[in-house]
Design a protein around this nucleic acid. Sequence first.
DNA 1: AATGAATGAGAATTCATTCAT
DNA 2: TATGAATGAATTCTCATTCAT
Lengths: 217, 217, 217, 217
Amino acid sequence: MLKKLTDEKIVEILETGITEFAKKGLDGANINVIAKNAGISIGVLYKYFENKEEFFLACVKRSLEALEAVLKEVTNGEEKILVRAEKIIRAVIYYSKEYSDYINMYQEIMSGSSKKFAPLLAVEIESMTAKTYADFIKKAMESDDIRKDIDPRMFAFFFDNLLTMLQFSYSCDYHRERLKVYCGVDVFDDDEKVITELVKFIESAFTFAQSEVAHGK
Amino acid sequence: MLKKLTDEKIVEILETGITEFAKKGLDGANINVIAKNAGISIGVLYKYFENKEEFFLACVKRSLEALEAVLKEVTNGEEKILVRAEKIIRAVIYYSKEYSDYINMYQEIMSGSSKKFAPLLAVEIESMTAKTYADFIKKAMESDDIRKDIDPRMFAFFFDNLLTMLQFSYSCDYHRERLKVYCGVDVFDDDEKVITELVKFIESAFTFAQSEVAHGK
Amino acid sequence: MLKKLTDEKIVEILETGITEFAKKGLDGANINVIAKNAGISIGVLYKYFENKEEFFLACVKRSLEALEAVLKEVTNGEEKILVRAEKIIRAVIYYSKEYSDYINMYQEIMSGSSKKFAPLLAVEIESMTAKTYADFIKKAMESDDIRKDIDPRMFAFFFDNLLTMLQFSYSCDYHRERLKVYCGVDVFDDDEKVITELVKFIESAFTFAQSEVAHGK
Amino acid sequence: MLKKLTDEKIVEILETGITEFAKKGLDGANINVIAKNAGISIGVLYKYFENKEEFFLACVKRSLEALEAVLKEVTNGEEKILVRAEKIIRAVIYYSKEYSDYINMYQEIMSGSSKKFAPLLAVEIESMTAKTYADFIKKAMESDDIRKDIDPRMFAFFFDNLLTMLQFSYSCDYHRERLKVYCGVDVFDDDEKVITELVKFIESAFTFAQSEVAHGK
DNA sequence: AATGAATGAGAATTCATTCAT
DNA sequence: TATGAATGAATTCTCATTCAT
């Protein structure tokens, strides 16, 4: 009992926090409940984390690391852009289901009681993908994989917008309902359909001008 | 002073509520503060609205009506799809700035303390646009304005996803920061650039196959 | 609308009040609800009654008058004491069911939020019966109808105690349950049994010593 | 100060609650005031008791236990019924003065804002005495101590009715005034008089028929 | 005279944080 | 070092009473 908390224990505490914050938000979550669920005393939680907000931020950091690992694995590679795009789309659907708590916690930052951290965290969270996407669009433009008449950062932004909404659609109640409204309740039985159509959408958005060029325009 | 509250006063109260809920969320907002800001007593607020939740829902309804009016004006018309799409994009950017509180309140429903109403409200809110978009994509397909190899509902969904993220990007802190990360701080000085690029993105997504066909494929 | 409230209307208002006060007590009852149920405006209620407490007291007064009428009818007469006692017992059971609201309102005065009026009202309410009972016990003693070795006021008290508990047993939830606990659930199907046994109890209490004397002790 | 509340402290809190509930009733009593009077923080009260109602019920339970102990001591014994009856009467007068708060709290359950618990608590509270009384009447009947032509449960009920009213008469304002109305203000100076007369009343009620039989009727 | 909209004090309950043990 | 009992500020909602119309 006089030993420092192991790293595994810390992770366990953070995961408990993530679960709770994802469900109830920063203000709604109960620190005492989190401590109890994590099997530790309140005192020890306050030993490791200054206060509720610091603990929340630590939870966000933890989820970010986990997500970054997933993302890195997917965005790596030298395939053509559309092949990689499809890989990314697949990965997004998968981890949105698997790690829905993480996604819900980000949502909380965007609009819940932890909104105050939004400016701070937006940079930290989004920088991760922004550069990756913009870079591989730029490279694709150079190697004639996609059209050249576009602003790569802007297109990276639109691309990530589509992925972000996909995330939400597979992890949070509101957007799940929204997807059903748009595409019918059966849409959740056929992920491939969604993937195919989204790839189609993105492919043409990325290659349109090129194809015109190819046809002599 | 004993006159029933006028409709204008009711609207004023609702707008005060919207402002507060947009800022603090359902749980975070303080009913007493809202009453004071609206220049009424707590009692009168409770005379008109059963409780905090009912009042919140009334605020959502109010914002929905206002937004629906804007949307109806924009989606009306018989122009070709891309002309209308551009009009919509312009409108979205405009009202996202103008009515940012409304958008922030929707965000709250998606992920804040009012999450519990998400399933209920998702249908109500999204049905508004879902049918409009799917319909005009279908019509455009019939009149050869756009490619025919797509699922109109799915493309309506992707289209609305891009618009939704645009909304967020012009109305809430997190996404404003995110847009800066992707496209630079100057992006907010040049709305036309964003509009042009997004139209480009959507145009090709919508017309790609058709253009191929046009070119003899 | 410009006419004074008729006496019937006043009575209707008071009866509505009695119903509400019997159910919820002085503090628990809602004046605005009483006005609505009586079909009048709050303003008119406050025109006729100073405030909630005055209105409550008026309701008590009204119920007292009604009960007094019933009681007078029963206690009148020149029959022997035991005949009259049985008549009273029957009457008590009858009106405890018929006017249970009145009884419940008295209970409220004894122990509810209107307790503060207890000393005041006890005298007013109990004087009614106390003298009647003590008087007819004294007269019965003089005419050799009952034993002579008793304190008539004390026995009047015990007699009324039995009647009071009978009242409660037929009008209020707690004592109804209590009667069931003591005598079984079927006791409410056979009022005659209760009457017979209570008459038996009282008869012997009243005549015991006399009967001994009659037998030469 | 971080020790768990001792049992004595818990009892002290409950007694403070009893005092307050006896005076003001369930709704009228103020939890924050009770906490202050008990010398604890509101939080700790809510740590030990779910909410106001649960705390109230705990207070009732506590008083019940205390009263049960008194009662057990008195109803024990093998003396003849009338000896025991007198002992009980004495005890009732004693504890009605000593523990008037308990009695007042029961009154509150019968007719105050805690009425809703009446059916539940009536059984719990009354079962305690009902069986005891009925049993010793039955035994007395078997051993020729009292008349045989009576329903023991019914007579137990009447007996307890007299005791209950005695309780009220010595513990609550309304019934104290009532007793004065019936027997004069001096009655409270001479408990023996009351005891004697009540024993007389009960003795004859219990033995009347037997005495008649004894005399050959 | 009659109306009933408006007022606002007051009370139950929650939970982040402290700190004696 | 770890514990978790205790604290108490802060917030929602109710309803008796007023008084402009």
